[in-house]
Each structure stands twice: as C-alpha cells, then as structure tokens.
Nucleic acid binder design. Structure first.
Length: 480
RNA sequence: CGGGAAGUAGCGCAGCUUGGUUAGCGCGCAGCGUUCGGGACGCUGAGGUCGCGGGUUCGAAUCCCGCCUUCCCGACCA
C-alpha cells in the first residue's frame, strides 16, 4: 500500500530537514505552540525528557549537588551587571513591560539563563569559606527569542537543567567544570547512545561571560554537529559583578570562582537526528518510553487467547524491568501498527498471533534488524534485558562508526571545504577570528571544539597557513 | 533582518489563469458490517468565517489594494 498522509515521512537522503520536521510531528513527540517558535511537548516526547531527567538528576545528586528553583523573571538591572553577559543575550531577550494593568517601573526579563538571579542569591548566602563549595542545580524553562526556530533544536522556550556552583579556588572550579562534563558524557554515551567529541570552545564560541567553555559535540546523520551539553568556568566574572565573596580561613575577603553548566530538550532533537532513518525514529532503549511493544494478532475466536497471552507476556516483561506496551487497538491492522511503531522508534516489537501460540513462540522484530526471528515465548522475558542492552550497545557503536567515517584530518583549504560538506574536519588552526570568519563564510562551518583527546600537533593553519595556535587539531563542522 | 514558498474541513491538496447555482478530492473522524502475520474494505454520515480588512462587480475562494501569519534557506544561538 502507498504511504498515507498520517504515517510515512520524506526520506532522509531526499530532504533531511523535511524528514526531521515531519518525523517530530508524526511520531507525536511534539506539536507547534500558538506563539511562533514555541513547542508543545507531547506525552511520547515528554516521557523521553523525563527519562533523561531521571538519569541526569541521579548523577547530579550523587555528586553532592542539590536542586532548587529560582524565579522566571529577572529585573533588567540584574542582567546589566555583567557586561559581556548582557551583550551576549540582549538581542534574544523577551521583556515584560506591563503587568497588573500598568506599565512597570523596571522591565522584567524572562530568563534566558539564570546566572544573574542565582548570582544575586549566592552573594547573600555565601559568607565564609565554610559555605563553599555551593553546588546547586535547577530544572527550569528559559526563553530566548531566536530568529529561526526548529522543534527541539531551537525553540523560543525550552526546558533544561542548569547547574550553578561557587568555589573557593580556581582549581576547584576548574574541576567542577569537568565533573559536569562527566555527567553529560555518561548520559549521552550510556543513555542516548551517541558518540561525541568533548573539548574546549574556541574564544569566539564561548558562553557570554565565561573564561572557559567545554562542550560535547555529536554528529547527526547528515554530518552536521550538534552541541549536546556545555560547561562553563565563569572565573570571577560573575562573582565580581554580583559581589559573591567569602572570608577565607585566613580572614581575607575573596571572590568566589563560579561555574555553570546546562543540557536541554535539544538533546531529544539530537537523538532523533543521530539515530533516525528513513523508516522513522530509532530510540536508544535506555531512553525509550516503550522498550518493547507487543502487537497481538488475531480476530474472532483467536482474539481472546492472544490478548491473554499478550497481557501475561507484558506482565513478565514488566517484572524484569522492561517498559512494555500492548497495542490492543482493535480498529487498526497489524501491518499499520508495525509501521507506526517503527516510525516511533520502539527498539523491539513482539508479534504474537495464533501461529505463535500454537508453536510456543513469539515473533521478534528489532528496530535495526533486517529480519524477524522466532523466539520461545517461555524464554523471551528473561532474555529481554540482555537483548535491550545489546541493542543499546549496537546503537552506540553505530554512532561511533558513523562519526569516524565522516571525520577527516585536513591540511589544506580544499580538504577543509570538502570535509565539512559531509562531516567533521580536524584541522590545525591559527585562532585568528578573521580566519574563522573566512571559513564560515565559505562553508558555513565553525570551530566546534578543541578535543581533549586529540594528540599534540603543530603546523600551518589549514585555512591560511599561519602557525597553528591550539597545540592540536580543532574540529570544524557545520552545526545546528 | 535579507531571499524563497504558502495560507481552502483535523492533515495533505485541487479549484483561481478565463468571476457564475449547493466549494471538491484523498486520508483521518463517527455508525454499521466484513476483515486482521507488513500501511484492510464496503455502505452511511458529520465536518468549511476559502488567513484578515477594504475595494471592483448584479455576483468574488477566484480580480485589485493593504495587512497578518506560518514554513523553508541564510545571518544570531542550547
């Protein structure tokens, strides 16, 4: 049968952007909100977010951070206190000028990030070195009035987690930056099954007000980069602006060293684009709302028996900790359900019909496998956790291989231009902003990061021939 | 903000060039029946300020003017 309007998406290879947009809507991850650029996260998409939250929150708390909640509104004056910070965010702020039927004396900013409100509070809460480190996190929504929006990847309002910490020394703050990177590294690798590059942002790409920004860069299936998490060393920039000071053991008043780090609902967009194919989503089991879907097949006299068997199989899967759904919608044909659950990225589908029941088997279709297999009904529940783990591992390996296959070391301008058209380019670079601009103008690619694990290397800049500046190769790519 | 495209039923579209009775089609939706191992079928039915405002005309989805919105490609960015 031909595709209908309700299922089936434009192939990735034909139009990646159309594929992405259609998939988000048709898989019922999200819908558009009534205000431009806003997004309704539907239950299927929100469940993924809840699973991400659970995994990340656990890691954040395990390292001594505590959750809190700070206000949505920021007095305009607060934001102005850190000059670079306000310059960085000014163009994309939503400002409330009227409330309670009157014009406000001081406009209120809807937070684009919370360094300033939290900094103001930290200043009041921190008096002594005994109050440090102060390790805090909040789960919140923020608003950035971006010119161009895309569901999950760049929405006007988005959900995220932002960690904010204050430390007595630069060394402690520097270590905290990496602790946070560790959360993200684990989450992205072990849960999202995405192979990423981790490294420092170049000065031009740093967070507004940061001395150092570390980012995780994943590769999407069109070869473009997506930043999936960032961690900033804010030095004493914010503590100076907000007077976050403490008295040291020696009785000296000193500035705190602060950090901030965040990961957002954008990661969901990353999962879609890192794993999805022409048939739809491919969800990593650790973050899949349903890890297994059971499709009962049968009608008339067979139906009751099949439904009973499906329910009991679902119960056994639940007992071993598997998130499972029985698709017992009776008005839809099995074939329709197969296609729909593939579109929605469920890792494993179990088909259970009269033939299976008679043979004591169940038909298993894994989302990435070419062929279905028959599995003993009595064994499948016990096997499933291992099968899901294997699926998770295979997905990560596929992501890693894809990234390596689409990454090249380049030493000349032509090689650089060629490489960023299909993936990542590792290039020696001079660090000259003008040279970065020239690359960007010609290719739309930007420096993504200077990877931690790249070997030491010196030589001429691949773009302009001047001496390299970072001591190792920089990753250039077109980015979302 | 620059460049492109589009607003007609929940979704996807046709109709507009050349104005003319009741605005169509597919999917979806509801009811009944038959189906169900890869996107089922029949019959019946519901569903519309044709983006908004103004103009031309006996008559506007269709022609003219103005406005709004959305989407796509860039610049800005998690």
């Amino acid at each position: 049968m031909a595709r209908t309007n309700t299922l089936g998406v434009t192939p990735q290879s034909e139009d990646f952007s159309a594929w992405y947009n259609e998939l988000v809507l048709k898989a019922e991850l999200a819908d558009r909100g009534p205000v431009r650029g806003t997004m309704i996260i539907r239950p299927y998409g929100y469940r993924i977010w809840e699973l991400i939250q659970g995994e990340l929150d656990r890691r954040i708390k395990a390292t001594g951070h505590e959750n809190a909640y700070f206000p949505l509104f920021i007095p305009e004056g607060h934001l102005r206190r850190e000059a670079e910070h306000v310059d960085g965010f000014a163009p994309e702020l939503a400002v409330v000028t009227h409330a309670g039927g009157k014009e406000l004396d001081e406009p209120l900013i809807v937070r684009p990030t919370s360094e300033t409100v939290i900094g103001e509070a930290f200043a009041r809460w921190i008096d002594s070195y005994r109050d440090l480190p102060l390790l805090m996190n909040q789960w919140a929504n923020v608003v950035r009035w971006e010119l161009r929006t895309r569901l999950f990847l760049r929405t006007t309002e988005f959900l995220w987690q932002e960690g904010h910490t204050a430390h007595a020394s630069a060394e402690e703050a520097a270590a905290e930056v990496l602790t946070a990177v560790g959360f993200y590294e684990e989450l992205v690798r072990d849960c999202a099954a995405m192979s990423v590059i981790i490294g420092d942002k170049t000065p031009g790409e740093r967070f507004a007000g940061a001395d150092r920004t570390v980012s995780l860069e994943a590769m999407m299936r069109d070869g473009r980069a997506l930043q999936t998490g960032t961690s900033h060393d804010l030095g004493t920039n914010f503590s100076r602006a907000f007077d976050i000071t403490f008295t040291s053991a020696e009785g000296v008043v000193e500035l705190c060293h602060t950090t901030s780090w965040g990961m957002s609902t954008r990661l969901i967009g990353g999962i879609i684009m890192a794993h999805g194919d022409d048939r739809g989503l491919v969800l990593p089991p650790r973050l899949a709302p349903y890890q297994v879907v059971i499709v009962p097949i049968g009608r008339g006299d067979d139906l009751a028996g099949v439904l009973d068997a499906a329910a009991s199989l679902a119960a056994r899967l639940q007992e071993v900790g598997v998130r499972v759904k029985v698709d017992d919608r009776e008005q839809l044909s099995p074939g329709f359900k197969f296609n729909e659950w593939e579109l929605r990225g469920v890792p494993v589908r179990l088909e259970l019909g009269p033939r299976d029941l008679a043979a004591g088997t169940v038909t298993l279709a894994a989302r990435l496998a070419e062929e279905k297999e028959q599995v003993r009904l009595a064994d499948i529940a016990a096997e499933m956790p291992d099968r899901l783990t294997a699926f998770q591992d295979a997905l990560l390996e596929r992501s890693r291989r894809f990234r390596l296959e689409h990454t090249r070391n380049v030493d000349t301008w032509d090689e650089l231009v060629e490489a960023v058209s299909t993936g990542f380019a590792n290039a020696l670079h001079c660090a000259d902003p003008a040279c970065e601009d020239r690359i960007k103008e010609a290719t739309t690619a930007t420096p993504r990061c200077v990877p931690f694990d790249a070997p030491d290397e010196q030589g001429p800049c691949a773009a302009c021939g001047k001496p390299s500046a970072y001591g190792r190769r920089v990753v250039f790519a077109r980015a979302y």
